[in-house]
Amino acid sequence: MFTGPVQDLVEELSKLPGIGPKTAQRLAFHILKTEDVDAKRLAEAILEVKDKMRFCGKCFNVSTTELCEFCSDPRRDATLVCVVEEPRDIWAIEKTAEFRGRYHVLGGAISPIDGIGPDQLHISELIERLEPDGIKEIIVATNPNVEGDATAIYIARLIGPLGVEVSRISSGLPVGGDLEYADEVTLGRALEGRRRM
């Protein structure tokens, strides 16, 4: 255990996701050794991101403006919306360059044991968007686990009866790889979710 500012820094760093006490110590001592100007830049970047960044008023993506770059882009199809758990999932889908619709960030997935229900997520805001935006189709791209599936089912049950098409992204094999390198669980899932040709 250290005392004073070093310990304060270690404790703050270890609150970050994926950072254990040992990594927090290493980071703290690294910061201690760096040039003043670099440390200041880091501190300012943290302050600035909290100060300048906010969440898009429509889709809850991170943004510097009232509407994010996707919601304010007229070239993107407003009738097609991809629903994701976190803003970082948008970047994963954007990298594919295959999706030309808009997004909606839920801010997580339904997980009762963590106290997260529909009210803690931006689901009612999604419902409110349906009519004014003329949304015709929703693609639920939550994570392929128990909580992500539950969230997808919940949204489908809620929105399906309103005449909006709801689909779920499929899970299966990585493309371009060899079948023999796929793990049994993923390969088993892919067999389950096979499609007719």
Binding site: I110, P112, G117, P118, D119, A150, I153, Y154
Partner: peptide, 8 residues
């Protein structure tokens, strides 16, 4: 409101 997701 907790029971809202029970069907799911």
């Amino acid at each position: 409101t907790a029971l809202a997701t029970l069907d799911t």
